[in-house]
Computed example of a mutant assay.
Amino acid sequence: MSLLSLQHMKTSIGQYHVLHDVTFDVPEGGVFVLLGRNGAGKTTTLRSIMGLWTPSPGSVLFEGADISGLHASAIARKGIAYVPENMGIFGGLTVEENLVLATAKGKFDPARLKRIYDLFPALEKFWTKQAWSLSGGQKQMLSVARAIIEPRRLILIDEPTKGLAPAIIDGMAEAFLEVGQTTTILLVEQNFNFAKRLGQGMAVIDDGRIVHTGSMAAFAADTKLQDQLLSLSA
């Protein structure tokens, strides 16, 4: 059984029909990548899974149970975290305060905090700094750290490399590979080189519909298909 299964999911925002018939499965473990051109529906898919927008009709199955229609807070309590494209951190709070807010009981598990320090040493260095003063890469680290400060079954991550320097992207890739050993990641990403480095499975969305699914290795080897579906040469 897949950890996450989207079945004929449709989402409308006002008068606009953004997702038309989104169907794909995310297996448990590792990194699954959702690719697509700008405006194809990638972010809407993540937001619909998280309950920020309600798909209708269609269903979102998590561990076999239908979670479509649940409030975002109820979905989060099932073990799903969301790292939005805008990072969703609180600029006026310190690194420590941002992470405290993401804990279930307002205190840290020492082992999980050490893991975050190991993944993102800059966060320990700037522990008492307000989040607004961090660099773009450090803010992204903090956003991901908030998602993993508590045990999660699934993390939805939207465009984490946008605007980041190559050295920061390399560090982020290593962190995601480590996190993916214990937590499933559904990653939306425009940087194909980053995506193919991480992903095991993948799907391509275009105009609100899934047009291709398969293994990342096979897709990365087929430049003709990449050009056809993504209009890029990888």
Rank of each mutant, 00 (worst) to 15 (best):
T11N: 09
V18K: 02
T44W: 03
M87C: 06
F194Y: 05
R77Y: 11
A218N: 10
E96L: 08
L186C: 06
P84M: 02
K139W: 07
S133D: 14
A234L: 15
T183M: 09
N98I: 00
A40W: 03
T43G: 08
E85K: 13
T128K: 15
W127A: 02
P160Y: 03
V26N: 04
L123D: 01
S143G: 11
D66P: 10
V33N: 08
L46N: 07
E96D: 01
R209W: 02
T161W: 08
S231G: 12
G58C: 05
P55E: 04
A203V: 06
T184P: 05
Q138A: 04
M172A: 06
S12Y: 15
N38G: 06
V26C: 01
L164F: 11
L154E: 10
M172K: 03
E124R: 15
E28K: 12
L3M: 09
E159H: 13
V83G: 01
V60W: 12
S135A: 10
A74F: 12
Q15Y: 14
S231A: 13
S135E: 15
T213R: 15
A165Y: 04
F176E: 03
F219R: 12
D222R: 00
F176S: 02
M50E: 13
L154D: 12
K114E: 15
K10S: 15
H17G: 09
M9K: 10
T44C: 10
L187T: 09
N193F: 13
G69Q: 04
S143V: 03
L198H: 09
K114T: 14
K114A: 14
A167W: 09
F24I: 00
L119R: 10
G30Q: 12
G106L: 04
M172Y: 03
K105V: 00
G208V: 15
D222I: 00
G91L: 07
T11V: 14
N86Q: 13
S135K: 04
R77E: 15
R47V: 07
P151D: 07
L3G: 08
I89T: 04
G163W: 01
A165L: 09
L142R: 02
G88L: 05
I169T: 04
E124H: 09
L156N: 04
S59H: 14
D222S: 01
V26T: 04
L232A: 09
D207H: 15
S2P: 15
G91Q: 05
G180L: 02
N86R: 08
I49C: 09
W132F: 14
S48Y: 00
E96M: 12
D109P: 00
